[in-house]
């Protein structure tokens, strides 16, 4: 961007000039806020003379919080499913975070298929971009993605010709094109 003269962005728009003129009018706040500020200042001066809480106790608390956080991050995907939840053919599991992208695993049960791909907001809906790989011999297909927090519409393409929604994620309430689409939320 060019560093032109300071005032080359002078308002030449009548509407904006009127807006600015209006916004420049004085605004008077409640003067008692000064007194409240002074009260707070005086109170803090008193507090500074009071004994501080035990530093060791605070350090322990901080350590415990960090440990809890680390514990959550490395929990194995399968252990995250709550007891009693149905074993779904497709699961989205959130693994460790780095930067702010999360690992997400997509799984689809598609026996008797020769190839499965996923298309969605995370790969510009490109059928060639993200193939799933078969695992075991029961017709399960898997892929791992790294996704930043957000909401993603997606669907599966089976054998290059059949669209399949993810049955364990909600359907897109906003399906615009008549094909089955799911939505996943990464938090």
């Amino acid at each position: 961007m060019s560093m032109s003269a300071e005032h080359d962005d002078a308002l030449d728009d009548e509407v904006l000039r009127q807006v600015v003129s209006e916004l420049r009018r004085p605004v008077r706040l409640d003067p008692s806020l000064d007194r409240r500020a002074l009260d707070q200042i005086r109170a803090e001066a008193t507090l500074r003379m009071a004994p501080r809480p035990d530093r060791r106790w605070r350090a322990w608390l901080a350590g415990a919080a960090v440990a809890a956080g680390v514990g959550l991050a490395v929990v194995l995907p399968d252990q995250q499913r709550p007891a009693g939840a149905p074993a779904s053919p497709v699961t989205v599991e959130q693994g460790e975070a780095s930067s702010d992208a999360r690992s997400v695993r997509l799984r689809l049960a598609a026996p008797a298929s020769s190839r499965v791909a996923v298309v969605g907001d995370f790969n510009d809906w490109d059928p060639a971009a993200t193939p799933l790989r078969p695992v075991g011999d029961g017709g399960t297909w898997i892929v791992e993605l790294r996704l930043k927090p957000g909401r993603y519409h997606y669907t599966f393409l089976i054998d290059g010709r059949r669209w399949a929604r993810d049955p364990s994620e909600p359907p897109a309430a906003e399906s615009d094109f008549g094909a089955p689409v799911s939505v996943l939320t990464v938090s």
Partner: peptide
């Protein structure tokens, strides 16, 4: 829903 039906 069975796979393949419209999502909405």
């Amino acid at each position: 829903e069975p796979v393949g039906r419209p999502a909405l």
